[in-house]
């Protein structure tokens, strides 16, 4: 589904990703771990099309298409979803409005008819019930005055509504207490699907206790230095990132 080859990206002249390779197939859950500053978030942002980063080399293909040629919104409509580490507040714009516009932009892109307000509400209520979220979320401004946990759950709701093919969740666990973490993890698990790939970007192993990944990759110095299965995350937890760094340098 996603093929990242020798990806190099920099911001204001400073290289963050230095030849990264990653292959993700439908139905898989990948966890990308790494110390602060290793380029985890950069990878997520580059795939989503954040223009602050300059791709200097390599390629990113999504379902056979050259992703780097597409605008951010086109990538989204093709089925890429980024769960933000810091979801943005947009005062006055209510969640339902943003979601409906987003759902319809995607439907239009795929040649489907737009859904009306009634259908939309029905769909939204179903998803919210599934995620155990309060209905009042829909009428609140996008992330406006939300607590950290509410913001992250709102990201999962958006993901549920937009039904992406590839969901990249950037530090979805950061700043959450254990109950909020469980709620978010349950949401993500309920969205696991043979058609859908999920990439979890995380600093800590604890999220993986709740969302079991098929693959774990360790990012260091802008490259994946080690890949393995779930046990790699446990090993990391035990031995720390220093171990990977040393291994990488060796």
């Amino acid at each position: 589904m996603l093929e990242v080859k020798n990806l190099k990206a920099s911001i204001v002249g400073k290289e963050i990703l230095s030849g990264l390779n990653l292959s993700v197939a439908a139905g898989e859950v990948h966890a990308i771990m790494g110390p602060n500053g290793s380029g985890k978030s950069t990878l997520a942002q580059v795939i989503a099309g954040q223009t602050d980063y300059e791709v200097t080399d390599g390629s990113v293909e999504f379902l056979g298409k050259d992703l780097l040629e597409l605008e951010t919104e086109e990538r989204a409509r093709e089925g890429i979803f980024l769960g933000f580490q810091y979801p943005v507040e947009i005062p006055g714009v209510n969640n339902a409005y943003l979601l409906k516009a987003a759902v319809n932009a995607k439907r239009k892109h795929h040649g489907l008819s737009e859904i009306d307000a009634f259908e939309f509400l029905k769909l939204a209520r179903e998803k919210m019930a599934m995620l155990g979220m309060d209905q009042s979320f829909l009428n609140r401004g996008v992330n406006e005055g939300f607590s950290g946990g509410e913001k992250k759950r709102n990201e999962i709701l958006q993901m549920a509504m937009l039904e992406p093919l590839l969901a990249i969740l950037d530090e979805t666990d950061s700043g959450l207490d254990i109950d909020a973490l469980k709620a978010v993890a349950n949401g993500v698990n309920s969205l696991r699907d043979p058609e859908r790939a999920i990439v979890l970007v995380t600093h800590y192993q604890r999220l993986l206790d709740y969302i079991e990944p098929d693959y774990v990759h360790v990012l260091s110095g802008g490259r994946i230095v080690r890949s393995g299965d779930k046990s790699l995350a446990l090993e990391l937890e035990e031995r720390g990132y220093e171990w990977v760094r040393e291994a990488a340098n060796a």
Partner: peptide
Amino acid sequence: NQLFYCRQRGISEEDAVNMIVNGFCK
């Protein structure tokens, strides 16, 4: 950041601006 967030959700830049402005005037 607001524009990028909306665009990541599949909304065009122009629609995103309109949406944010309308929210501002709500």
